[in-house]
Design a protein around this nucleic acid. Structure first.
Lengths: 332, 332
DNA sequence: ATCTCGTTTCACAACGTTGTAAAAGTGCTC
DNA sequence: GAGCACTTTTACAACGTTGTGAAACGAGAT
């Protein structure tokens, strides 16, 4: 079958440890020996057995990325960037889908599939605050997003409150006063919905614009369908509104679709702003104004943080926040 | 650190091999012994070391999926389904992105990262027919898509010609006679563009509608941007058309965006049909009529084929074609 | 009791690699 | 031409698991 160190050693006439030294660029190898070994490696097409290496060294140079669903554009783009960032550091990425299901998330944390990798990037969506204790697993872990926190676990997140305040301010500055939201989760405090709502509320307060409960479009799942439904409900309620701040782009596109179908012009009658800057908002009709949460930076910082945690488990806990910006397009 | 078979054995007062037997459900273990060992496993939270297992057994129960870019909705949804299908079979999925770059694809095939997994699902986009020989790697491999073929390599694909013929026929049946395409690759014979074009051409021939070269919108990359550009060129050329058949949904959405921006009504002036049935066509404005290539079935058959190949390398070569259907929405 | 045969347990040897430490080789100094 | 300080190579022991085959055990037949 595949060649081993021993096969190469036999061919090159050296001990298998010398071959290992060549493979690992150990400095004290005579150039002529190195050359001979290299030739044997070429000839046999030798490639190290990664299971053996991993067993011996305790490292696999693989990490897991656990996301709710890859088909959601936000997570697809996040995974894309995570894979790129990991590759830059010589790591390979294994992807787990949790379907935003608490049980699956909890199971994952103690799964022996985790033992195949050096660490986990985890974007939880089903677990709640009461589950935070379960995050203390013996494996390097970096949390993504704003659903779950734990003081002793590394975390990379975006500035949700600030960004949401920025989006709302932007609408206010352009003269909109009746700003509906789409994606509201009543009662939620942390979590994307909670934090983004807080930013929205704060911006209204700053501007002295009263908050109208009727303009809070609930959507538990942030899919297009729910965005469209929330928009329908807002329309049906009869409450007037001249802007929609959707808590993500997918909701925004769904809502925009519903608004247009109902004969509202975007942005003339209703300005729409999303959140995430996923690719699909770029070519929607009209194209979508949105918050760019710096996904590339999130991915890069997350992988970096995990790599450092893997290298040194005693590092102080990292809580990283990355910057955001507003991308202005046709919908506002 | 983590408990091993030996630790459990010591606690349970048996040999480590007996623990191994319990873990692997070896039948000849006395119930009382089994119970004692189970208790020790629980107490220590023992989980098998997968590197050691994999070294010894030669299997990792992991597969790689290599796709051009995860941010493209088609591949995100494909990866989503592949991960689900793999999980049903107890396999874990590692994802590689090739950026549709020939060099990266070629490198991947001989990468030692492949040695970490039992097999590879490969959706090539950069390699050409002349590279087919490179597919003969010593690792179980299943090809996806229509870019590359090799008689001795398993393959799962969709019925491109038939589906494209179906889409074109559908437009013809609804009275459209001037059907433009978007995504044409001049001179290509195999590959998605080549095959879908063939289906288009055959449907026109069947209906006795002449093919007009001016209606062939070229787009090498199948991104929204290129779809929009191709549509602009069609409009600028002055050639009349009453329908667009885009070779994928992303192109279709880009083209539709451009058409609407130019004041054409969809579907009244121009009917638009896409290909892929990705989620984003469902909530576009107007929603997109498209070909559903049965992605779930593709993923399932692909993983199944790979699993069988892993289990038995001497199996006859499998070439699988999955069915398609037309999803009618507002754009036509 | 003893023998036989099936059940249950165990000892040992892999799998292919890296770390440690010792052995062998080389070149320089006196 | 022995002694010393390097450099280069090697032997051996892990890492934690599974497969093989032998040993120990237990029950039923003699």
């Amino acid at each position: 079958m595949a060649a081993t160190l021993h096969d190469v050693a036999r061919l090159a006439g050296v001990s298998f440890k010398t071959v290992s030294n060549v493979v690992n660029d150990y400095p004290h190898v005579r150039p002529s020996t190195r050359q001979r070994v290299q030739a044997a490696i070429e000839q046999l097409g030798y490639q190290p057995n990664l299971s053996a290496r991993s067993l011996r060294s305790g490292r696999s140079d693989a990490i897991s990325l656990a996301v709710p669903e890859l088909r959601l554009p936000y997570f697809a783009e996040l995974a894309d960037e995570v894979i790129r960032a990991a590759e830059r550091r010589g790591l390979v990425v294994l992807i787990e889908q949790t379907n935003r299901d608490r049980r699956r998330e909890v199971d994952l944390l103690s799964s022996n599939r985790l033992r195949m990798v050096d660490g986990l990037l985890f974007s939880p969506l089903g677990m709640g605050e009461e589950d935070a204790g379960l995050l203390e697993i013996g494996v390097p872990l970096v949390l993504l997003g704003e659903r779950l926190f734990h003081p002793s676990v590394d975390h990379v997140m975006i500035q949700n409150v600030e960004a949401a305040r920025g989006a709302t301010r932007y609408l206010l500055e352009r003269g909109r006063r009746r700003i509906a939201v789409v994606g509201y989760h009543p009662g939620e405090v942390i979590g994307s919905a909670g934090l983004r709502f807080r930013g929205y509320r704060e911006a209204l307060e700053e501007a002295g614009v009263p908050l109208d409960e009727r303009l809070l479009g609930v959507a538990q799942l942030w899919h297009r369908h729910q965005g469209a439904e929330a928009a329908h409900q807002l329309l049906d309620s009869g409450a007037e509104f001249d802007a929609v701040f959707a808590f993500n782009d997918t909701l925004a596109l769904g809502a925009m679709h519903a608004l247009l179908a109902a004969g509202r012009r975007v942005p003339e009658d209703v300005a729409v702003v999303g959140f995430d800057n996923t690719d699909d908002g770029q070519y929607s009709q009209p194209s979508l104004t949105t918050i760019d949460p710096g996904r590339r930076e999130i991915a890069d910082r997350a992988v970096e943080t995990l790599a450092r945690r893997i290298a040194d488990r005693d590092l102080p806990v990292q809580h990283v926040e990355v910057g955001w910006s507003l991308v202005e397009r046709e919908s506002s």
